[in-house]
Amino acid sequence: MNLVEFKNVSRSYQLGEVSVTALQDVTLNIPKGAFTALVGPSGSGKTTALNLIGCLDKPSQGEVMVAGQAVSTMNRKQGADFRGEKLGFVFQDFNLLPVLTVFENIEYPLLMIRDMPKHLRHPLVEKVLAAVSMENQADKYPAQLSGGQKQRTAIARALVGNPLLVLADEPTANLDGATAKTVVELMKQMRDEFGTTFVFSTHDPRIMDQAELTFHILDGRLEDAPAKEVTHV
């Protein structure tokens, strides 16, 4: 069963009088549970594809289906609700809220988006904190963490609501090689533990090898068929 489906998706932007095509006639399917990489050089269209999957953007042409829903037809409020319920995000710059502790950052989606009561949300936060081995850093603020710890926190925040899909845009770009490898292994481990589908963009060859399903994007077009077959569904 496909969790993500792109049907002849194109996305172009108007920059002044110039039309820039970020994605062109892309058709792809990502099965549920896949550990998927969108690979390509900077400006190839990876982030645009992730934005379309994450209902942050709408295609100029074609259709994007996520978990059986056409995300391109959702309005802002529906998009926000869909993201809050079904998706998790991990960013290249971590994007943790600096005024909140590690615990509070992870707690944020449950508290501010799902309005979950304390007795339900605290066990969930503690569970993901333990899963990403950050339980001893729970009271620290992002400024007190290393890059790897920040990204672990961001992964925990993305996973705490038990989403169907986690989208990670260049999650290792700001990390050194060893830390980047650890973070990707952690994501894979989380996929195994929580059954969450991961889709991440990268242009780091050391990381893309970890993916079970890889889509190469170049100049907005999908190159050939998936580079690897899915081994874990």
Binding site: G54, A80, D81, F82, G84, E85, G88, P109, I113
Partner: peptide, 11 residues
């Protein structure tokens, strides 16, 4: 980031 995580515009 807040919006991407699913925080409604009203909130």
């Amino acid at each position: 980031t807040l919006a991407a995580m699913g925080t409604r515009p009203g909130r």
